[in-house]
Design a protein around this nucleic acid. Sequence first.
RNA 1: UGCGGGGUGGAGCAGAGGCAGCUCGCCAGGCUCAUAACCUGGAGGUCAGAGGUUCGAAUCCUCUCCCCGCUACCA
Length: 592
Amino acid sequence: MTENILVCTAWPYANGDQHVGHMAGSLIPADIFARYHRLKGNRVLMVSGSDAHGTPITVKADAEGVSPRDIFERYHQRFLDTFISIGISYDLFTHTDTENHYRVAQDIFAACLNNGYIYKAAQQQFYSAAQRRFLPDRYIEGTCPKCGYDSARGDQCDNCKTLLEPTELINPHAKEDSSTLELRETEHFFLDLAALKDEIAAYLNEGKDFWRPNVINFSRNYVKDLRGRPITRDINWGIPIPLEGYDSKRLYVWFEAVIGYLSASIEWAVKEGEPEKWKDWWYQPQAKTIYFMGKDNIPFHSIIWPGELIATGRSLYNDNPEQKMNLPYNVASNEYLTMTGSKISTSRNFAIWTLDILERFDPDAVRYYLNAVAPETRDTDFTFEDFITRNNNELVATWGNLVNRMLGFAYKRFDAQVPQPGELDELDREIIAKIETGFNEAGQLIEAVKLKAAQQAVMKLAQAANVYLDRKEPWKVFKNDKEAAATTVYVILRVIDSLKILFSPFLPFTGQQLHQYLGYSGKLFGQSCKEECSEGERSHSVLRYRAENVVGRWKASQLPAGQTLQKPATLFKKLDEELAEAELSRLLGDSS
RNA sequence: UGCGGGGUGGAGCAGAGGCAGCUCGCCAGGCUCAUAACCUGGAGGUCAGAGGUUCGAAUCCUCUCCCCGCUACCA
């Protein structure tokens, strides 16, 4: 049965480039998952976008003296390039500064308000008379009450790491111009999470035992003590409140960014020319919605986003009272990737930027390694040494070499054709059967979001294929019995053809290459393309997935004898171990 | 402070009551079609520490130490 699968990845702040931590933590896992389901024949919708709002964007804009829009548009473009380069196959990657997203976010706000889940309350906040505005905590500086550090920020002291309230600071003043501050009362809208608590708890207690322990345990505990949370701020960069008289306030980014999953799905459907199609993922009860993110982001996906949907009544843009909008089916959070033992830091420029590493290494090599060390259950460490070792010993030696030796052998000895097999013996049938069971085994692991184990299982099958060759020794047999060798070569080509598919969610680029070497035409997957979209006032660039001429299917090879092979070339490059040293000094040099 | 996750041979990870497993590295042997690649065998661990439950504990319970995240204005 065809399933509808919605694959979501957390919306990245567009205030800096994407690094390998983003890739290993959520994008590559999500992409593997999406590609697998497409091969399976399921209907996949994979969406995300750049988060245009939020304090980090304005901080960066202020630092450079440009507008927040300039900042996020710059990085948004670079995100699109990054995803094309490493093959993150979004059906739509958009951003939150679109009219569509504004409308959906405002509609959700209005629905929550109408249902009584949003209330108003006054807060005391620091106001700068000189700047004539309320200041976000990040913009307030003062002396830390704990350690006496005199440049502590309103949210945290960078010296002693204590989390602070701005009112705790001694001598608080504006960071930007040192202007004095006064506490003023300001009214804000709050999402009434306390009132939603029971329904969120019921959701988390219903059939969620397959969720990862870090997510479900944390969430179930978190929901025990839910309080109202402000969803507006006194700033001018963001989405306006859809009510009269609140011109100086905007929707706070944590409320609005998660709404992007829905607004992006709607945008996608409109672009497809079937504006109602998004409902196949959001209103069909059997549809599965999977969210990928880093561990810092868990409560926004397991508590707050479900809470927002419940607060709308789960019936937005839908007339059928029988249907309820789908809450997240799975929240698949990863832990963190560290860099040679240290935390990755965008602000300290201590990171391997995805675009940068792809200038020197192939995307599949990077994808393979990042999935092999993905932080599925704990923090894991990226080292260049390990990257090179795994590339050389696993990708090149076990898989790449298997392909290279046998495609080369068939090309040279069998006239560049898939040879006609004779009768299959026990070893032949055994290896074919073994690879065929791999489709089930790897498929189940991927569906359970155990992507490291899945990749490892496929690599073990490649190893089994090498063992088979060692038993059959076609290069030796060929000298006396060309027909027996032909059978072996046929069997191994068929095995390689199956492994091509098994590896392809992980290694889509070389999978396509191999597909052609084996003499096939067509594409295993669709293509990612940039597109410019105009709305009423503005236009924006997006990434879309075009599935034309796609033939990839998650099933065992039926390689036809006689098919003409293309002249093969190596799929993976062996990397010099000295590159590790060079990359490391590059990294350390960059961060100083 | 509280909450959640994690700590397993040299490296990276799996296992969640029944002889401690996988990939890589290392050592020895085999093979030569292949990117010095492939195959076979071997060495290497008191499962962070202490106590407990059990016929039996990496696995369950208690305490301690260490790392990471959250702790509500860093989504």
